[in-house]
Protein backbone atom coordinates (compact mmCIF):
# COMPACT_ATOMS: atom_id res chain seq x y z
CA UNK A 1 0.00 0.00 0.00
CA UNK A 2 2.21 1.40 0.07
CA UNK A 3 2.38 -2.12 -0.12
CA UNK A 4 -1.09 -2.11 0.45
CA UNK A 5 -0.70 0.86 1.10
CA UNK A 6 1.68 2.97 2.83
CA UNK A 7 2.79 8.66 6.16
CA UNK A 8 4.09 11.68 5.21
CA UNK A 9 5.75 13.75 2.65
CA UNK A 10 8.20 16.47 3.03
CA UNK A 11 6.28 19.13 1.34
CA UNK A 12 9.34 21.23 0.79
CA UNK A 13 10.73 18.49 -1.36
CA UNK A 14 7.53 18.20 -3.26
CA UNK A 15 7.59 21.88 -3.96
CA UNK A 16 11.22 21.74 -4.99
CA UNK A 17 10.43 18.91 -7.34
CA UNK A 18 7.43 20.67 -8.73
CA UNK A 19 9.53 23.72 -9.36
CA UNK A 20 12.13 21.52 -10.98
CA UNK A 21 9.47 20.50 -13.44
CA UNK A 22 9.22 16.89 -12.38
CA UNK A 23 5.47 16.96 -12.49
CA UNK A 24 4.03 14.94 -15.29
CA UNK A 25 3.08 16.68 -18.39
CA UNK A 26 1.74 13.33 -19.52
CA UNK A 27 -1.57 14.12 -17.96
CA UNK A 28 -1.68 17.39 -19.80
CA UNK A 29 -2.37 15.42 -22.94
CA UNK A 30 -5.41 13.86 -21.34
CA UNK A 31 -8.15 16.38 -20.81
CA UNK A 32 -10.00 14.03 -18.49
CA UNK A 33 -7.22 14.52 -15.95
CA UNK A 34 -6.67 17.70 -14.06
CA UNK A 35 -3.06 18.74 -14.10
CA UNK A 36 -2.53 19.31 -10.47
CA UNK A 37 0.58 21.41 -10.95
CA UNK A 38 -1.54 23.95 -12.74
CA UNK A 39 -4.53 23.52 -10.57
CA UNK A 40 -5.00 27.23 -10.35
CA UNK A 41 -6.78 26.94 -13.68
CA UNK A 42 -9.26 24.38 -12.40
CA UNK A 43 -12.72 25.62 -11.51
CA UNK A 44 -14.86 24.73 -8.52
CA UNK A 45 -17.03 22.62 -10.77
CA UNK A 46 -13.99 20.71 -12.02
CA UNK A 47 -12.71 20.18 -8.50
CA UNK A 48 -16.07 18.82 -7.49
CA UNK A 49 -16.36 16.50 -10.45
CA UNK A 50 -12.80 15.21 -10.34
CA UNK A 51 -12.22 14.99 -6.61
CA UNK A 52 -15.22 15.55 -4.31
CA UNK A 53 -17.48 13.35 -6.41
CA UNK A 54 -15.35 10.33 -5.54
CA UNK A 55 -17.05 10.22 -2.14
CA UNK A 56 -19.97 12.63 -2.24
CA UNK A 57 -21.18 11.23 -5.58
CA UNK A 58 -22.18 12.80 -8.88
CA UNK A 59 -25.25 14.62 -7.64
CA UNK A 60 -24.09 15.23 -4.10
CA UNK A 61 -26.26 12.39 -2.91
CA UNK A 62 -23.61 10.86 -0.61
CA UNK A 63 -23.61 7.14 0.14
CA UNK A 64 -24.22 4.66 2.92
CA UNK A 65 -22.26 1.50 3.64
CA UNK A 66 -20.70 0.43 6.92
CA UNK A 67 -20.40 4.17 7.37
CA UNK A 68 -21.60 7.03 5.23
CA UNK A 69 -20.52 9.93 3.09
CA UNK A 70 -22.66 12.93 3.92
CA UNK A 71 -24.99 14.01 1.20
CA UNK A 72 -24.52 17.56 0.01
CA UNK A 73 -27.77 17.73 -1.95
CA UNK A 74 -30.50 19.78 -0.27
CA UNK A 75 -28.15 20.11 2.65
CA UNK A 76 -29.22 22.60 5.29
CA UNK A 77 -25.81 22.54 6.98
CA UNK A 78 -24.50 24.30 3.88
CA UNK A 79 -26.40 27.36 5.06
CA UNK A 80 -23.14 27.97 6.90
CA UNK A 81 -20.53 28.60 4.24
CA UNK A 82 -17.97 28.66 7.02
CA UNK A 83 -18.76 25.08 7.96
CA UNK A 84 -18.37 24.00 4.37
CA UNK A 85 -15.16 25.95 3.84
CA UNK A 86 -13.66 24.75 7.12
CA UNK A 87 -14.40 21.17 6.15
CA UNK A 88 -12.56 21.59 2.87
CA UNK A 89 -9.68 23.42 4.54
CA UNK A 90 -9.21 21.14 7.53
CA UNK A 91 -10.82 17.86 6.57
CA UNK A 92 -13.22 15.95 8.77
CA UNK A 93 -12.75 12.42 10.04
CA UNK A 94 -11.54 10.34 7.10
CA UNK A 95 -11.73 13.26 4.69
CA UNK A 96 -8.27 14.76 4.31
CA UNK A 97 -7.55 18.46 4.69
CA UNK A 98 -7.34 20.13 1.32
CA UNK A 99 -5.28 22.96 2.71
CA UNK A 100 -2.69 21.17 4.79
CA UNK A 101 0.51 23.10 5.47
CA UNK A 102 3.72 21.51 4.24
CA UNK A 103 4.62 19.80 7.50
CA UNK A 104 1.23 18.16 7.82
CA UNK A 105 1.31 16.54 4.44
CA UNK A 106 0.85 12.80 4.28
CA UNK A 107 2.57 10.30 2.06
CA UNK A 108 -0.31 10.04 -0.27
CA UNK A 109 -0.55 13.59 -1.44
CA UNK A 110 -3.84 15.35 -1.36
CA UNK A 111 -4.66 18.49 -3.20
CA UNK A 112 -3.55 21.77 -1.80
CA UNK A 113 -6.27 24.18 -2.81
CA UNK A 114 -5.83 27.92 -2.76
CA UNK A 115 -8.29 30.03 -0.77
CA UNK A 116 -9.84 31.11 -4.07
CA UNK A 117 -10.38 27.49 -5.06
CA UNK A 118 -11.85 26.61 -1.70
CA UNK A 119 -14.25 29.53 -2.18
CA UNK A 120 -14.98 28.36 -5.69
CA UNK A 121 -15.80 24.78 -4.79
CA UNK A 122 -17.88 25.91 -1.79
CA UNK A 123 -19.81 28.27 -4.06
CA UNK A 124 -20.35 25.48 -6.53
CA UNK A 125 -21.74 23.07 -3.97
CA UNK A 126 -23.90 25.74 -2.34
CA UNK A 127 -25.49 26.62 -5.68
CA UNK A 128 -26.03 23.09 -7.06
CA UNK A 129 -27.68 19.80 -6.10
CA UNK A 130 -30.82 21.56 -4.97
CA UNK A 131 -28.92 24.08 -2.85
CA UNK A 132 -29.66 27.66 -3.63
CA UNK A 133 -27.61 29.82 -1.33
CA UNK A 134 -27.15 33.23 -2.89
CA UNK A 135 -24.17 34.72 -1.12
CA UNK A 136 -20.83 34.25 -2.88
CA UNK A 137 -17.84 33.32 -0.82
CA UNK A 138 -14.56 35.00 -1.78
CA UNK A 139 -10.93 34.07 -1.32
CA UNK A 140 -10.70 36.84 1.29
CA UNK A 141 -13.54 35.28 3.25
CA UNK A 142 -11.76 31.94 3.24
CA UNK A 143 -8.44 33.49 4.15
CA UNK A 144 -9.95 34.70 7.44
CA UNK A 145 -10.85 31.19 8.54
CA UNK A 146 -8.42 29.10 10.60
CA UNK A 147 -6.25 26.98 8.35
CA UNK A 148 -4.72 23.74 9.58
CA UNK A 149 -1.44 24.41 11.32
CA UNK A 150 1.30 22.38 12.89
CA UNK A 151 0.93 22.08 16.61
CA UNK A 152 -2.45 23.79 16.67
CA UNK A 153 -4.74 23.01 19.56
CA UNK A 154 -6.88 20.01 18.76
Amino acid sequence: MRALFGGLTLRRLVIALLVAGIVAAAQADDPSFAVMATLSNVSGEDIYNRICQGCHMAHGEGAIGAGRYPKLADDSTLASWRYAALTVLQGRNNMPAFSAPPQLEWDSPTLHLSDAQVADVVNYVRSHFGNNYKERVTADDVAKLPHPAVGAAP
Binding site: R2, L13, I22, V23, A26, A37, D107, P109
Partner: peptide
Protein backbone atom coordinates in the same frame (compact mmCIF):
# COMPACT_ATOMS: atom_id res chain seq x y z
CA UNK B 1 7.98 12.34 -13.75
CA UNK B 2 4.96 11.59 -11.66
CA UNK B 3 2.30 14.12 -11.04
CA UNK B 4 2.23 13.34 -7.40
CA UNK B 5 4.95 11.84 -5.34
CA UNK B 6 4.61 9.05 -2.90
CA UNK B 7 6.45 9.04 0.35
CA UNK B 8 8.46 6.18 -0.95
CA UNK B 9 9.44 8.12 -3.98
CA UNK B 10 10.42 11.03 -1.83
CA UNK B 11 12.42 8.78 0.42
CA UNK B 12 14.16 7.44 -2.60
CA UNK B 13 15.07 10.94 -3.66
CA UNK B 14 16.16 11.85 -0.17
Amino acid sequence: GCGSLSRRQLLRMI
